[in-house]
Amino acid sequence: MIDGRAVPPLHKLAGVLIVLAVVVGLVAPDAGRPGPAEAKPAAAPGGTAAPSTPSAAPVAGRSGAGGSATAAPAPSGTAPAPVIGAASAVARQVKANELGQIPVLMYHRITAETTASLDRTPKQLREELTRLAEEGYVPITAADFARGWIDVPAGRHPVVLTFDDGTPGHFALDERGVPAADTAVGVLLEVARRYPGFRPVATFYVNADPFQLGDRAADGLRWLQRNGFEIGNHTFTHADLSTLSKAGVQREIARDEAQIVALTGVHTSTLAYPFGSRPDRDSWARHKEGEYSFRGIFLAGWRPSVSPFHEDFDPEAIMRIRSEGKIRENDCRRYCSQAWLEWLRENPGERYVSDGDPGTVAFPADVSGDLAGGYRGYGRSY
């Protein structure tokens, strides 16, 4: 007896505490997905750096970065699966939809004189980036997109800017050691100065002799990395991987990876297929022990990507949009960047809208069924 009250048996008290602990664990807010991982390369055979293990949040039915499909683990014991929580007032106010579509724009040469259909002039690039800035888009890297770390202000929309082939029009250092004005990097920096909320961030997929910098390549690539840009793998010789054997695919990717590691000291996180051509097996490109390992692999697709939190997201086949106006060629009137950006503007319910919190996934209740199972604990509906 304590103050005339009976003390409950200890085994009953313990049972109550266990139940309370389970309830708190289910309803308490999640700690959030891990932030951008610091590059900490480890020694590997041959003197190169070994790829680190991806640390992205789990996605049901997928393994690792671009892993092959597997069955989602069943809940242990009788504990229910994680539940979707309530969205914040901010998410409701901005009508957040983090299951919406995200444009991943694909650029090739940036040049004053266009000679191929994929070429864009600095003026055309400047106009497209200005449009993105004015329509509330915020660039993120391909790696952050693939790992599900989308840290943009509430009410804004992520966009991924990707540049293939590592040409001098993407990046060049002038005599002062700063990016040349009419390169892709120079234009990005210019637009970011005019629109402070528009980050000068992009991913450059390089081949042999990146940007044709020669003996300045190490300085150039490290400048890009220090300033928030990402370097990605695009194979050493821009090979059509659909025509190669497993050994050929892995040799092309590994040679490019070894070059990048030698120049920067770190491994890449993402790969873009030259020509958008996939090898016979995606697993050949996704990972090779001690050589490379990718969080995401990008195609040369024709439409915006689904959200990385959507149940249909496939990290081995991420869609991109060709940067181009509404022209007849390749049906760009429907499927290139100008047409898709117009469509997303006219269909705001289909576009990704951030809740401002990278540790949650907010969306309208009527699309809750589209959330990938592994993200239910991060889900917040309204």
Rank of each mutant, 00 (worst) to 15 (best):
F145R: 01
G136C: 11
G155Y: 02
R156K: 09
P153D: 12
A116E: 15
A181L: 08
A143L: 02
D165H: 06
F163L: 14
V178W: 04
A184M: 11
G155W: 05
V152F: 05
L161P: 01
L189P: 00
Y195P: 01
G148K: 05
A142R: 01
F163Y: 15
Y137H: 04
T115R: 10
T121Y: 11
E175G: 11
A133E: 07
E134F: 03
G197I: 03
R120K: 14
A192N: 14
L188A: 10
R131P: 02
V191N: 10
I140C: 04
A180N: 07
F171Q: 07
P122W: 13
E113C: 04
A116F: 08
E113V: 14
P158L: 12
L118Q: 14
P158E: 12
R156A: 06
L118D: 09
A116P: 00
A154D: 02
H170S: 09
T141P: 02
H157V: 05
A192P: 02
R120M: 15
L173H: 05
A112D: 15
A180L: 14
T162E: 03
L118C: 06
G197E: 15
E113Q: 15
D164W: 11
Y195R: 14
G166Y: 01
P122A: 09
D151H: 02
D119F: 08
S117N: 05
R126C: 02
F171D: 06
D144G: 01
E127I: 03
A172R: 15
F163I: 08
I150Q: 07
V152T: 03
D182S: 04
R193A: 13
L188T: 03
G177D: 15
G166P: 00
T121N: 14
W149V: 00
G136I: 08
G155V: 07
L125C: 07
A184F: 10
Q124V: 05
G155K: 06
G136E: 11
D144L: 01
P196I: 13
F145C: 00
P158M: 12
D144C: 00
E175P: 00
